[in-house]
């Protein structure tokens, strides 16, 4: 088995043992509760919204949580003297995140199919989740690098959500109608993420989708190299190496 796979399976095993997966399922249940009580029958339009929160804030948080556990327990140090590369470590974490996101997606989708009406391009949504989750996992790394403790990380995450997600959410629920303002939103990654998730419900112009994919890919790749480069610094500073 390659190291990447070992690390990925290890991540998933730990997500179970440290009750992170359980927490993620609980959040899915809350979304189901909300879908249930809103009384909206065709949930197609609001469905991406729930997924959106999971792949953005939750992805950031999940990276932070697991890395803080590892830091506390001296694991990062141990992994650094194992025959694995930093890239494998980072990618295993982002993939584990995607898997958790996909789990949420499936739970919510199954509920919507069984009890509500939903018309969504699952392949499209699936791909969007993977890409958006990858980007936000990387954001999670950056926030973790620059946070002394978990509280600090939480503050970063809340700030990010507030600054980048509030406008997108307001637009999504129809509270922002100014066209100029909407244009500015295109540069913020959360908006791009939302476009991609929404694309699965139809009604988004192809060029907008392509542009969003391209934009998100480029900034993800750039961010990936930053995360890779800064890893040693973090590991040395934060794990008391």
């Amino acid at each position: 088995m390659g190291s990447f796979l070992v690390l990925l399976l290890g991540e998933i095993q730990r997500m179970k043992k440290y009750n992170i997966l359980a927490a993620s399922v609980l959040i899915s249940l809350i979304w189901i509760g909300i879908m249930h009580f809103t009384g909206i029958h065709d949930v197609t339009q609001i469905f991406p919204l729930f997924i959106f929160l999971d792949v953005t804030s939750m992805s950031i948080l999940l990276i932070g949580v697991t890395m803080f556990f590892e830091k506390q327990e001296g694991i990062i140090k141990t992994l650094m003297v194992s025959p694995i590369s930093k890239a494998e470590y980072i990618l295993a974490k982002t993939f584990a995140n995607s898997i958790s996101n996909i789990e949420t997606l499936i739970i919510l989708y199954v509920y919507a199919k069984l009890f509500k009406e939903i018309n969504i391009n699952m392949v499209g949504l699936f791909s969007a989740v993977v890409l958006v989750s990858f980007f936000h996992s990387l954001i999670g790394f950056v926030f973790t690098y620059y946070s002394k403790d978990f509280t600090r990380l939480l503050m970063w995450m809340i700030t990010y959500s507030f600054v980048f997600m509030t406008p997108v959410l307001l637009e999504q629920v129809g509270m922002i109608r100014n066209e100029g303002m909407k244009k500015i939103f295109y540069v913020i990654p959360t908006k791009t993420s939302m476009i991609l998730l929404n694309a699965s419900t139809g009604g988004i112009k192809p060029w907008e989708v392509y542009l969003s994919v391209f934009y998100l890919l480029i900034i993800s790749i750039l961010l990936y190299f930053v995360v890779l480069k800064k890893f040693d610094e973090f590991a040395i500073k934060e794990s008391g190496v």
Binding site: V6, Q13, K17, E73, G74, T78
Partner: peptide
């Protein structure tokens, strides 16, 4: 490497800890 301070996943058993790391080596 045997570090100065113990380094283990605390919520995993001893065996789970060892098995995870063993898989990383030839």
């Amino acid at each position: 490497v045997g570090f100065e301070m113990p380094v283990h996943f605390s919520k995993l058993t001893a065996n789970e800890n060892l098995n995870f790391f063993k898989k990383l080596y030839k």
